[in-house]
């Protein structure tokens, strides 16, 4: 409203031949500015080029550049290049991956972990999202969602530490079990795939919950009622109506959680043990030592990235075909 009012006042001022004394008026009548604008907006084409140049440059050099440079380094035999040494292109860094068990084992472990944990997160958060979207009034929905958001604003390290305190030998869970008289000796939860799994699910649950919630929230209640009127029981209604119509949310939630889980570094270091080494620890290992291991680390990171992209791509295509099959 205010904008309109000033604009019309400006027009009146212009019509009366008076100069516009506001900051914007003065800027608009300042000669260098005007000639600059005239130059920049001479044609729609030039205007667009000026608008597009910086974003294009940014995404190419800042978003794509690091990945390309990583790929390039992964194909060389020495990086950073020492003085007087010639750099050669080679595939050795990639073949090294398949040659040694200590390399490919963590890789497959990571993929399995990430897959299993993604599934667990889905099972865990679906009822929560369902409850929020279907059984809570609009006003309370936002409040109850906000309640869940609070812990997720807290950082990765702090939440990992919270899990360490929960699961340690003198941690809350063991003390509670002891107090109940169910165990005498503490159960060694820590430094196992169990503690790592709990930690990673704790960190990623929200990325599953939000897409699921928005998919469920979009679903009209009338669909359910129609299915019920046609005689479908609770389970059939879920299987034939709710589940197929929330596949999109499931698909994006799973993709996000899978990609995030494969990329954790601190959580496996703190919560995992020697038997649960994941690939991110393997990759990081090459960067702690002196420079000459960098190409191998870069190659391994490239392998990881491409595999994760291909897997999530295939998964999304699969979900898409499932969705299409249902609407036919």
């Amino acid at each position: 409203m205010r904008n309109d009012a000033t604009a019309s006042a400006n027009r009146v001022a212009v019509a009366r031949g008076k100069a516009d004394r506001t900051f914007w008026g003065r800027l608009a009548s300042w000669t260098p500015y005007r000639s600059l604008v005239r130059l920049a907006t001479a044609s729609p084409r030039r205007q667009f080029l000026i608008l597009a140049a910086f974003p294009l440059l940014w995404v190419l050099t800042q978003h794509l550049g690091p990945m390309l440079q990583m790929l390039r380094v992964s194909l060389t035999d020495a990086y950073p290049v020492a003085v007087g040494v010639e750099q050669h292109f080679t595939l050795d860094n990639y073949t090294r991956f398949f040659g040694e068990r200590i390399f490919w084992q963590p890789f497959f472990r990571t993929l399995t972990f990430a897959g299993v944990l993604t599934f667990c997160t889905l099972i865990l958060t679906y009822p929560v999202a369902y409850f929020l979207a279907r059984h809570v009034s609009r006003k309370n929905q936002m409040l109850m969602l906000l309640l869940l958001l609070i812990p997720f604003w807290v950082g990765e390290i702090v939440r990992t530490y919270a899990i360490m305190i929960l699961l340690g030998n003198t941690g809350a869970v063991n003390q509670a079990l002891k107090w109940l008289g169910w165990i005498d000796e503490p159960i060694p939860f820590m430094y196992t795939s169990f503690s790592m799994g709990i930690g990673i699910v704790y960190l990623t649950a929200l990325y599953m919950l939000l897409p699921l919630y928005s998919a469920l929230e979009k679903l009209p209640k009338s669909y359910h009622e129609a299915a019920a009127d046609l005689g479908a029981g609770a389970w059939t209604r879920f299987r034939r109506v709710t589940l197929p119509l929330t596949l999109e949310g499931i698909s994006s939630g799973c993709t996000l959680v899978f990609l995030i889980s494969t990329g954790f570094y601190a959580t496996p270091v703190l919560l995992g043990g020697p038997s649960t080494t994941v690939f991110s620890e393997t990759i990081a290992g090459f960067f702690h030592t002196a420079g000459d291991e960098w190409p191998t680390g870069a190659a391994f990171a490239t392998i990881m990235f491409l595999t994760a992209m291909v897997l999530t791509g295939v998964f999304q295509k699969l979900m898409q075909s499932l969705r299409k099959g249902d609407t036919k």
Binding site: Q69, G263, Y265, S280, I283
Partner: peptide, 16 residues
């Protein structure tokens, strides 16, 4: 793209 790259890989790429 930067939002999709798993954390460790993005860190390595930036480092390089």
């Amino acid at each position: 793209l930067p939002a999709l790259i798993p954390g460790i890989i993005s860190a390595i790429a930036f480092r390089i």
